[in-house]
């Protein structure tokens, strides 16, 4: 079911995110975070829609603090978008990430 979203850790960041051939959406999530729980099914649904065209990854913030700090991520959930090894576009964060907005952001990433 969640096959379209893979979890990575900080050690895989360079290869899986920066080195990816397709655009990447990276979700920093936490436990005890209702907005993260709310985002998960939307993230998976959009990941499924864009399967093969963009890579959807998630990283557990508490277990990868240094990476979060390095990217200046201080809130969960935070979606960071990458293309060609560089962060692009505006991050999405917090309770109100809509499925339609995420979809539009990924479409913009692909153009």
């Amino acid at each position: 079911m969640a096959a379209s979203v893979e979890e990575i850790n900080a050690a895989q960041y360079e290869e899986r995110v920066l080195g990816a051939e397709t655009p990447v959406v990276l979700d920093f999530f936490s436990t005890e975070c209702p907005p993260c729980e709310a985002l998960a099914p939307k993230f998976e649904a959009v990941a499924e829609q864009f399967a093969g065209r963009a890579r959807f990854l998630k990283v557990f913030r508490q277990g990868n603090r240094e990476l979060a700090t390095q990217l200046g991520v201080t809130g969960s959930p935070t979606l960071v978008f990458f293309k060609g090894g560089r962060e692009v576009g505006a991050r999405m964060t917090g309770e109100d990430i809509k499925r339609s907005a995420l979809k539009s952001a990924v479409e913009a990433l692909l153009t």
Binding site: P34, G75, R91
Partner: peptide, 13 residues
């Protein structure tokens, strides 16, 4: 700075 230092949810962040 939303999500980069500004938060509206103490439980979450």
């Amino acid at each position: 700075f939303k999500g980069r230092g500004i938060s509206y949810c103490a439980t979450c962040d």
